[in-house]
Design a protein around this nucleic acid. Structure first.
Lengths: 205, 205
DNA sequence: AGTAAAATACCGACTAGTCGGTTTGTAAAA
DNA sequence: TTTTACAAACCGACTAGTCGGTATTTTACT
């Protein structure tokens, strides 16, 4: 593994550059110059700049979906599933902050063929989380007076937004932030009678 | 008021087009063609395409700051202030969804001179909210075991993310969504002993 | 009020530069 | 010998911004 393929080097460099300056502000020339390669090499590995953007999107969202599904499968109660998913997601966001920045800010630049695929996967990711919330409501573990779609999007928003402000060099680690998020979400949506199970995830005052 | 200035028409059209297709995918030619004007007219009103982008940013963020500050000044307890701010913010986001899309997705395209101004104002907006949280913690109305910076960003994320998914034509109005958000935030951060005051904002089960 | 002058608002053809993508060439591997 | 992997020069479409000019409004003076 000492030798990285040119393709991988292109992807890695692009992720970094796109995050910094945005897809449209980074030229193919700049990417290849950045890694000391040539345009010929670039277009040998990618049909188009657009295909590169798609690959970056797909690597990220496919990983998120798989991790979310794993977290779901690993546990069997709504509360533990939700906590595991929050844990997993923030962890992914910690690792893939550059990818997610591109994912959420450059998806409009994808051409139609790729755009459809990515949007379907993005919806799939949300559906996994929403399923957990809905199942929790069915078993009266989560408050039914809150619409599950809104709860889902509130959680998604809270987590996703971290890509805008989280700094790995900051005061708090992503683990600490996750604990706070988990606490807030559980207190917000768990019913009184189910709060006992959630207690272990709540920060003591 | 029957006659709109060309400048205003340019801004309005650009907001719409930028939201749909992104700043870089909308040419100056397309903007002026869209409103039946000319490039000369455009560059008579704006130094550059970049200045136009800045104006759109500034209109939005200045309004948000002013509304947030008003909400703060109008009330005098952390809970009422927080609720008023949530109310105000979601309302603004309902009206300015196009602006906020541009604000959060195209700010990287701002040149340095404008970028500094906008980032300062964005921080100012966050600080107003964070101040409310911090004051609530000082008076033991909000749980002190949660770091106020994280709580602030969790709330900001929850609200801001609405611009990605909220549809005015959707099932729920922004007012209904606000009620859910308010409920979740209050349950998440208000202390047991202060929950009595918050009760009025909580959705009954 | 009437009018000339000046400033403002706007037009549209043109340009210089940029950037995604192509083509041709070549060295090593299979 | 053919294929793979890359290099480097090149092309053509596109686009931000310019510039000389015209229409319209405002100002200034009689």
């Amino acid at each position: 593994m000492v030798k990285k393929t040119l393709k991988q080097r292109i992807v890695d460099a692009s992720v970094e550059l796109f995050q910094q300056d945005g897809y449209h502000n980074v030229t193919v020339d700049r990417i290849v110059e950045y890694i000391g390669a040539s345009k010929g090499g670039f277009y040998h590995n990618f049909k188009s700049k657009d295909e590169l953007l798609y690959e970056i999107h797909d690597v990220f969202i496919s990983y998120v979906i798989q991790q979310s599904q794993d977290a779901y499968d690993k546990y069997d109660t709504p509360i533990t599933r939700l906590c595991a998913m929050l844990q997993t997601l923030t962890q992914v966001f910690d690792m893939y902050q550059a990818h997610i920045t591109i994912f959420y800010e450059e998806s409009r630049s994808l051409s139609d063929e790729y755009s459809d695929i990515i949007h379907k996967k993005r919806d799939h990711y949300r559906d996994i989380l929403q399923k957990v919330i809905a199942e929790g409501q069915e078993s009266k573990v989560f408050r039914t007076e809150l619409p599950c779609t809104i709860v889902t999007m509130a959680i998604v928003g809270m987590i996703n937004w971290t890509y805008k402000w989280f700094k790995q060099s900051g005061q708090l680690t992503m683990e600490q932030i996750t604990d706070v998020f988990t606490d807030m979400v559980l207190r917000a949506i768990v019913t009184e009678q189910a709060m006992e199970e959630a207690k272990q995830f709540i920060i003591k005052g």
